[in-house]
Simulated assay, not measured.
Amino acid sequence: MKLRVKDAAELLKVSEKTIYRWIAQEKLPVHQVSRQYRFNRAELLEWATTKCIPISPKMMEEPGDVYIPSLEEALRSGGVHYRVGGSDKVSVLRSIVNILALPEEVDRQFLFQVLLARESLGSTAVGDGIAIPHVRNPITLHVTRPLMALCFLEIPIDFQAMDGKPVHTLFTIVSPTVKAHLNLLSKLSLGLRSPDFAGVIARTGSREDIFRQAGLLDARLAERLTVKKERTS
């Protein structure tokens, strides 16, 4: 989907003037179509997540009947993994791909290559020791249900983060559809700005503590969407 400047401004909760300024500064992923600026929804959300920029809940309100898991469900499916090995970005991504709970028919080598290709476009580190390696085109993976794996590294590594801090925690999203991919990325983006969820991640909490905070975040998001629907009905 190609978004216009006013659409991007609404989703990022900034003015159109700010969008134009970011374009001029070459900060924002943008395309020109018939001399008009257009944005790709996935690229925009990835950029906002890596820059820790607040996003509109509309990022999670796309129409359709695609299955969307809660953040807790996605984390339970992907698992929480501790002391994951690797001495650099390549070896860490290899370790993560190897431990992902994927169907046998999924080509892990292909997934590894796609993750590396995504990193070549720009680091998925979002700061404060966290990275969110994921693929730009999730529909090519042919998994049956979306998942999100949380990996705590045994040794922090250089991930070319903007803040220069080594990465010790990685969230990896794998999804069969773009909609579910965007939805989980949105929820995670909100979660990393939530003191409770971000806190349990920062202190390397237990699996059940992490799942519990994810569930509480899901409940707050559901309540927020319910209130918004009631106000507009």
Rank of each mutant, 00 (worst) to 15 (best):
K2M: 07
V5A: 13
V5T: 15
K6N: 15
D7Q: 12
A9L: 12
L11S: 07
V14H: 11
K17W: 04
K17P: 00
T18N: 14
T18M: 11
W22K: 08
I23G: 04
A24K: 11
Q25M: 12
Q25A: 15
K27T: 09
L28T: 13
P29D: 11
V33T: 13
F39P: 10
A42C: 06
A42P: 00
W47Q: 10
W47H: 13
A48W: 04
A48K: 10
P54M: 08
S56F: 14
P57C: 12
E61P: 02
D65Y: 10
Y67S: 09
Y67R: 06
S70Y: 01
E73H: 02
L75R: 00
R76K: 15
V80F: 01
S95R: 12
S95W: 08
N98V: 02
I99T: 08
L100M: 15
L100H: 06
A101M: 05
A101W: 00
E104P: 01
F110T: 13
F112T: 06
L115V: 04
L115Y: 05
L116R: 12
A117Q: 13
G122W: 13
G122Y: 15
A125G: 09
D128Q: 03
D128V: 02
H134A: 02
T140Q: 13
T140A: 12
T144H: 13
R145Q: 13
R145N: 12
M148G: 01
F152T: 01
E154D: 15
F159K: 03
D163F: 06
D163T: 01
H168L: 04
H168R: 12
H168G: 07
I173G: 04
V178A: 10
L185M: 14
S186D: 03
K187R: 15
G191Y: 00
L192A: 02
S194M: 06
A198I: 02
A198R: 14
G199K: 11
I201F: 05
I201V: 13
A202F: 01
T204P: 00
G205F: 02
D209C: 04
Q213D: 07
Q213L: 03
Q213T: 06
L216I: 07
L216Y: 01
L216E: 14
D218A: 01
D218P: 01
L221W: 05
E223Y: 12
R224V: 02
K229L: 12
T232Y: 03
